[in-house]
Design a protein around this nucleic acid. Structure first.
Length: 491
RNA sequence: GUCCCCAUCGUCUAGAGGCCUAGGACAUCGCUCUUUCAAGGCGACGACACGGGUUCGAAUCCCGUUGGGGACGCCA
């Protein structure tokens, strides 16, 4: 009760943080914060082939982008470091020695090719679970030690009890029982001397005093092995909580072929971390029957493992997109403008240095599309017409523009009056156009639609008056004249 | 194949034996607001996988079937 909760997120640095990993990290983060515990970040890089420094950096960046800060781990340190497995080899060596001494582990000299072929045969025969046949299990220790000392290639295996069962008391799955006899004497240390995943996790989780292991469902069947290892090591078992996996639309494990699956890809597409967090939280967890929008703090206040669901969830980009729109719209103007300008700079629609008037103008312009976009990355596209002198009409706009021919005089007058307008403001423009439609006895749309087409090159845009004001008199007149000319109306 | 897990609208889910004529959200489709497009408002469509039990009563408990997923590596 009084013991402090310690959870961990332990990705292997083999690429960007992906959706599934992010969700696991999030649940650990929320649980830690909710319980006023500690979140440890540990890099599982014992696979030297696949782990890269770049990946490590990217994962850390992705975590930061999401705002999932860790209390112990790379960059921040902590009392149980180092926090990458490649730097903890001494610890594993000490532990393996202990296991050897207590008789829980043994040397195995079986060559990998032999094991591989035996496994294949077993599979083909359609045998029960293929498992190590225990050839080296009964090797006398002195002999094994001598062979190992003579540099004969070997691995270390854990002796699994051949009878009885191992039971997991899982916080989300309940009680799960595995018969020990279906388990392998699995490898703890590879021929190259590096620990395997199962060995390193347990050694580290124990050493780092992890109290709760919250991780993907795919690890459930590893858990009995790990429990055996905890027991062999004489360590206390943590609480396990296996959260459901995230699948692609075809119900197979979410992977690259399902499109963007890395957190980073969403960051670049203009998703807000707040939206990502909110959406991810709802994948496998729900607070009640009504609430879908949660601030980070609300998530922390309300998160509980009891409410984590058991079934796998399909990742739905459409809902994420919707939610992102909600978050963009709910941004304060200041907050929004800050992010929007960064996006425009990135797209080179703006360039630094930005003087005050230019900045103020860009901010106003960006604000006009705030309600319309669902991703920040849509900004350059949706604001394109604000930039440059001329504008190119798309097909739909072309058609609208043609309609100006039905009232050529009105548009000529519009052009003439705009040219001499003293103050090119929303109010003045509105008054002017009001006057024109009244005089010509036409509907607002008859005037607005072709005008919009000529000015923005499209059939939809923010409010036309704001657009005109922002664009300014000169460019407006120029574009209007060009547009009218293109449909045969000379001004 | 063996072991393990899971099973409510197309999707994410609420639901711990009577509150369920099964609730919410996304998507879809209408209508509405409107100078356009979004957004918003209103509404529609839409699910307890199947079969047996248990019980006065089952989406909820038990068993089986089917379906999906995961694990079975000197990957993590």
């Amino acid at each position: 009760m009084s013991e402090q909760v310690r959870v961990r997120f332990a990705p292997s640095p083999t690429g960007h943080l992906h959706i599934g990993g992010a969700r696991t990290a999030l649940f650990n983060y929320l649980y830690a914060r909710r319980q006023k515990g500690v979140l440890v970040l540990r890099l599982e890089d014992t696979d030297a082939e696949r782990s890269t420094e770049d990946s490590a950096r990217m994962i850390l960046d992705d975590m930061k982008w999401l705002g999932l800060d860790w209390d112990e781990g790379p960059k921040v340190g902590g009392p149980y470091g180092p926090y990458r497995q490649s730097e903890r080899l001494d610890l594993y060596r000490a532990q393996q020695e202990r296991l050897l001494e207590t008789g829980h582990a043994y040397y195995c000299f079986c060559p990998p090719e032999l094991l591989e072929s035996k496994r294949k045969q077993a599979m083909e025969r359609g045998d029960a679970q293929p498992k190590y046949d225990g050839t080296c299990r009964t090797l006398p220790m002195p002999e094994a030690r001598a062979r190992a000392a003579a540099r004969e290639p070997h691995t270390l295996r854990l002796k699994i009890p051949d009878s009885g069962s191992t039971v997991i008391h899982d916080r989300v799955r309940g009680t799960v029982v595995f018969e020990n006899k279906i388990m392998d004497d699995f490898i703890l240390v590879r021929t190259n001397g590096l620990p395997t995943y199962n060995f390193a996790v347990v050694a580290d989780d124990a050493a780092m005093k992890i109290t709760h292991i919250i991780r993907g469902d795919d690890h459930l069947s590893n858990t009995p092995r790990q429990i055996c290892l905890y027991q062999a090591l004489g360590e206390r078992l943590p609480v396990f909580a296996h959260i459901p996996m995230i699948m692609g639309p075809d119900r197979s494990r979410l992977s690259k072929r399902h499109g963007a699956t890395s957190v980073n890809a969403y960051a670049e597409d203009g998703y807000l971390p707040e939206a990502m967090i909110n959406y991810l939280a709802l994948l496998g967890w729900a607070f009640d029957d009504k609430t879908t929008l949660f601030t980070r703090q609300a998530l922390i206040d309300k998160f509980s493992l009891k409410k984590v669901s058991k079934n796998a969830a399909i990742f739905d980009p459409a809902k994420l997109l919707w939610m992102n729109g909600v978050y963009i719209r709910s941004l304060s103007p200041e907050e929004y403008v800050k992010r929007a300008l960064a996006e425009l700079l990135k797209a080179r629609l703006l360039s630094e240095p930005l003087d005050e008037p230019a900045r103020a103008w860009a901010e106003k312009a960006a604000l006009t599309v705030k309600e319309k976009i669902k991703r920040l990355a849509e900004l350059p596209q949706s604001m394109a017409f604000y930039f440059g002198e001329e504008v190119e009409c798309d097909e739909a706009a072309r058609a609208k523009l043609e309609q100006a021919k039905e009232h050529p005089e009105v548009f000529k007058t519009l052009h003439a009056k705009m040219t001499v307008l003293k103050s090119f403001s929303i109010q003045a423009l509105e008054a002017l156009m009001q006057e024109l439609i009244t005089a010509a006895d036409i509907k607002f749309g008859v005037l607005v639609h072709p005008l919009r087409a000529a000015i923005t090159g499209r059939v939809n845009s923010p409010g036309i008056f704001e657009v005109l004001e922002l664009l300014g008199q000169e460019r407006t007149i120029k574009r209007l004249a060009a547009g009218l000319k293109s449909v045969g109306i000379e001004v």
